[in-house]
Simulated assay, not measured.
Amino acid sequence: MNQFKSALILGALIGLGMIIAGWILGHSALKIKEYERIVSVKGLAEREVKANVAVWPIRFNAGSQDLAELYDIMQTNTQEIQTFLKNEGFSAEEITSASPSITDKYAQQYGGDANVALRYTASQTITVYTHKIDKVRVAQTRLVALGRKGIAFAGDDSGQRTEYLFTKLNDIKPAMIEQATQNARSVAEKFAEDSKSRLGKIKSANQGLFSIEDRDSNTPYLKKVRVVSTVDYYLAD
């Protein structure tokens, strides 16, 4: 009889414990479900900046029937261009000259043509690497003066387009990330207001990648820096 009572009491206690545990788990599940209500928003930050580095390749060509004469022409043209650049305010350290590339049309792969006007042709590139963006733009407009002296320059279609770079991204990163995050929060607050909810804490955040592009094709020295941050917020009633 005592054993039966003990078993009965034990069973009742186990049952009561299961009821209490079920209530606790159910209440916890409701809390978890409540906190699982989230809103995912994106915040955009954009900034227009001026390039701080210019890489200006100046490619020029010449031709001659005599190889030695051609080398003399290329050397003279190189000196003319270097003098021009120094007069425009560029230092010797900012100017790099590559060796000329010579083509013998008589010795081309598929056989030479003895009727060509000039047997030898040469091309060479002088590169200006500088932080003087405005001086590059001005000097490019004055390069025609060397053309009048007989120097033949290759056009942009030869792959020698001036490249403008912005290398100070780290200087503006913190402010842009802050702006993108603030914009994301503004969007989330509007969503919470429209849905009759309260905006909670941040669940997760993804900064996103920074992109640097030309503002447009006509002003490649002006850049547009852009970043999109994705932020997940908890929502509460």
Rank of each mutant, 00 (worst) to 15 (best):
V39S: 05
L85N: 14
A54V: 01
A62R: 07
L209F: 09
R226L: 06
L143E: 03
K33M: 10
Y110Q: 08
R198G: 13
Q79G: 11
S97C: 14
V128I: 12
N2F: 14
R226D: 01
I32R: 08
Y129M: 12
L10G: 12
A180F: 07
Y71I: 01
S64V: 03
I38Y: 01
K86T: 14
A54N: 04
R226G: 00
E163K: 07
T181I: 08
Y233W: 01
D72H: 14
K132W: 05
R47Q: 15
G15D: 02
V41Q: 02
V53K: 12
N183M: 12
D171L: 10
L199W: 00
S97F: 08
Y120G: 05
S64E: 03
G11C: 07
G159C: 03
Y106E: 14
A175C: 11
Y110L: 05
G22P: 00
A117L: 13
T219K: 08
N183S: 12
R185C: 10
V49C: 10
E88A: 15
E193T: 10
D134Q: 11
N87S: 14
K173G: 00
R215A: 00
F60Q: 01
I20L: 03
A184Y: 01
E69C: 02
L67M: 11
V116I: 13
Y110D: 08
A114M: 09
D216H: 00
R142N: 15
R148F: 09
S97D: 10
S123G: 13
K50Y: 08
Q179S: 15
Q182Y: 11
N115T: 13
S158R: 06
R59V: 08
I212E: 07
W56F: 02
Q79N: 15
Y120A: 02
A192S: 07
T103E: 15
V144D: 04
S123T: 12
I133M: 06
V39A: 07
G43F: 02
A12L: 15
Y35Q: 07
L70G: 05
R137D: 11
K149Q: 12
R142E: 15
S28L: 00
Y106P: 10
D104V: 09
V39Q: 02
V41S: 03
Y71P: 05
G150S: 04
G63S: 14
E46N: 11
N170G: 06
K201T: 07
D214L: 01
I24E: 05
L10P: 04
V41W: 02
A45S: 14
A29N: 11
S211M: 01
E163Q: 08
T130S: 15
K190A: 14
E80N: 14
Q109G: 01
L222H: 11
A7G: 03
K149V: 04
V53W: 04
D216L: 02
T121W: 07
Y120H: 08
L118E: 15
L8Q: 13
E189T: 10
R198N: 10
I58L: 12
G43R: 04
K50G: 13
E178W: 04
M18C: 09
R226Q: 09
A62L: 03
L67C: 06
A236S: 10
T127D: 00
A145W: 09
Y164N: 05
Q79K: 15
T83W: 15
E34Q: 10
T127N: 04
K135L: 14
